[in-house]
Computed example of a mutant assay.
Amino acid sequence: MIDFRYHLVSIVAIFLALAVGIVLGTTLLQEPAVKSAQELTAQLTKTKEELRAQIDTLQGREAGNDAFISAVTPELVAGDLAGQRVLLIETPGSNTAWREAAQQVLDQAGAEVTGRVTFTEKFLDPKGTGVLDGLVNQLKPVNMVFPETATSWGRAAALLGASLVTNDTAQAGTPNTTTADVVGAFEAGGLLTVDGDPAKRATLAVMFAPERPYEGGSAETQAGALVSVADGFDAASKGTVLAGIAATTVTPGDVITALRDEGEVSKRVTGVDTADMPLGPVAIVYSLQEQLSGRAGQYGNGKGASGPIPAEAAPTPSPTTESGS
């Protein structure tokens, strides 16, 4: 019978042998292992320095490009939107700096910004669709009919669009007879705020997506809701642009991605994903021009973009004369 002392001696012997092996192995392999580690460290350090230099170069080029775009923007957009009236729409989580930069360039393009509508988080709350539907049913004109597939936000956007924008140039600058009641009710319900005089209807709209994708269980629903809102304003106006930034990863709460995934809507509403760059406001102006001609596109650097700006808006090189002619 094997007793406890035998077990104890066996265990001690095993650990002693293991310890001796480790010591011998470390002693024999110490110099090659250290040398290998030193070589790897040196290589990694060199690679890091090379990548750092590449990043510095790219950042320098980007800064130079941005400075150039900023300098020539007034010339690039001068008069492009003369006579047009533009409504600005901010969403929960959108960046005020993007809107301010776009507003400045719209002014340089000759457009008149009628005002700003800012939707609240309450407007996007999926639990509040009953309140939204109730308001719409109470305020909509009797002749306003919604598509069967329209969401609560789509119906609300159709009503608000009819109140704040128009596709009839003759009606631009004038309020709809129901505007005051509609906007007042939505304000009283804590669903939006207004700035300026958006009741004097615009012909175009620019909507700013959240700076970061929405998160949580309602993220996809909220992103889709804003796509529906953009589509509603587009239908009521001469065109709408949804501006934001390109998502670095695929996420259901990203509004620009949601727009581009909506095949039919993306054919009507233009998406610009460079709102945080000097090129963004220029792309917005050119996209509004394209909307006025009845076309839409997806522009920027992110997935689904066909190019940085509409192709037909790209500056055309001046013709050259061959020497000797």
Rank of each mutant, 00 (worst) to 15 (best):
A180M: 08
L259I: 02
L160G: 06
G189K: 12
L226E: 01
A230R: 03
V183S: 10
P198V: 06
V229G: 03
G190P: 14
E215Q: 15
T203W: 05
I245E: 12
T179R: 13
A162V: 00
V241Q: 09
T166W: 02
G196Y: 10
Q222F: 04
S218M: 12
A225P: 13
R201M: 10
A243H: 05
V206H: 13
F208G: 00
T240R: 05
A236M: 13
L259G: 03
P175I: 03
A205I: 02
S218Y: 10
I256V: 15
D254R: 07
P198N: 08
G244F: 01
A230E: 06
T257N: 14
P198M: 07
T179D: 12
I256H: 04
E211L: 14
V194K: 14
L164C: 04
L226D: 01
L164E: 02
K238S: 14
T174Y: 12
A235Q: 07
E211Q: 15
L226I: 04
A247M: 11
G217S: 15
K200C: 10
Y214K: 02
G190Y: 11
T179V: 05
I256C: 08
D254C: 08
G196T: 08
V227W: 02
T251L: 06
L226V: 04
T240F: 05
A170C: 01
T249F: 09
G224I: 04
G232Y: 01
F186G: 06
T178R: 13
A172N: 06
A230G: 06
G216A: 12
I245K: 12
A258D: 01
E187V: 15
Q222M: 15
Y214N: 02
T203A: 03
G154A: 06
G232V: 02
T177C: 00
T177V: 05
A158L: 09
N176E: 15
S228D: 15
G161D: 07
S163H: 05
A205Y: 02
A247Q: 11
T178C: 00
D181P: 00
G216R: 07
T257D: 15
G244L: 00
K200I: 08
G263Q: 11
A158M: 13
T179P: 07
G196C: 12
E220D: 12
G173V: 10
T166P: 05
T257P: 02
G253N: 01
A247L: 07
E262Q: 14
